[in-house]
Amino acid sequence: MGSKYRIVPHLADVFAEIGGRTSLDAFSGSGVVAYLMKAMGYQVTTNDFLAFPAVISRATVVNHGTLLTPADVELIGGPTADGRDFIQRTFDGLYFTPDDRRFLDSAWSHIDRLEPVKRDLAISALVLAAARKQPRGVFTVTDLRYDDGRRDLRLPLREHFGETAAAYNHMVFDNGLPHRAVVGDVFDLPAEGIDLVYLDPPYAPPRDDNCYIKRYHFLEGLSVYWRGQTIMENTRTKKLVKKYTPFSYKRTVTEALRRLFKKFKDSTIVLSYSSNAVPDAAVIRDLLAEVKRDVEVRTVDHVYSFGTHTSARRRFASEYIFIGR
């Protein structure tokens, strides 16, 4: 929904201008910006309030050299180790075919036995496989109403997993520095000693909502096999209880941004924000100017991947890159 994949080249230019050695991706999401930071030679800390972004960061940023072997992939895609059926029972008739749901349970029976780094790689591949198989990659619908005939919607999850595992293996490299991934509230993070802070908070839209849990609850649950999660059994989609963030609401987002900028006032701040959201660019610039002498705004035309139908007018937006030095 909010992936920054398409604006990574613009962010790379900004980061190259800023320089520095240490960086924080405070709302890491898909992990593409944190991965960019690692590729550019930063010592990276990532944070997100959801579990599956942290798993992805551990697999691709923290991980320097561990890969899934062909034997690992074959084992995970093979017969179940313990006969578990939680996903088959809980999501009976939802999202995937019976064979796909059986595979997810079986895969986790082996993932549970892997050493930690291989486990992170395998979970990341499993999450990506599930996202690719689900129409539009979001779990707000339970049928194939958005079936556009793509190969991804036809390929069994077991085969998806083989492909995504290979893709994640290809991403692993060592930049010679230690990194870490955190799951938590951005306001609880230490602010000292960070040269570059990248902020991509949830956007507060004028209408509708930006609830990541509503759209990605299945991926969040899958990343931990629903341990410690509360499923809302009365919902059609079996979604998880929503986590509160002040950035999601028009009445609280402005003060939350002010607190955020004040917290990281001693670092160079780079903020991504959308013209589809509130507050507007002028307000954000003024907020940054409260703690930064030099505030620059760059504009990038952007098409969001969420809502790929041609009538989804809110897909088209300007992405603002605010730079506070």
Rank of each mutant, 00 (worst) to 15 (best):
F247R: 01
R145P: 02
L94A: 02
L153K: 07
K118I: 00
E319L: 01
I87Q: 10
T299S: 14
R285Q: 15
D301S: 15
T308K: 15
P79Y: 15
D82A: 11
A204I: 13
F316N: 10
P206N: 11
P135H: 07
K292N: 08
R21G: 05
Y244I: 02
T254H: 03
R180T: 11
P156W: 13
L144H: 13
A81E: 09
M171W: 13
I284C: 04
L155R: 13
Y244M: 05
A191E: 13
F27Q: 07
Y95M: 05
R101I: 08
K265E: 12
I231Q: 02
V61E: 04
R313G: 00
K214R: 14
A282S: 13
D208V: 10
L121W: 01
G29W: 10
R151W: 07
K250F: 07
D120I: 05
R145L: 08
A166C: 00
T164N: 09
P53M: 10
V55S: 07
T69S: 15
G137H: 03
F218I: 04
Y42V: 02
F96C: 06
P70N: 09
S248V: 01
A122N: 02
S275F: 05
I18Y: 12
K242H: 15
K242G: 07
T46L: 00
P201I: 02
A282Y: 04
R258V: 09
A54V: 12
Y95E: 07
F247A: 05
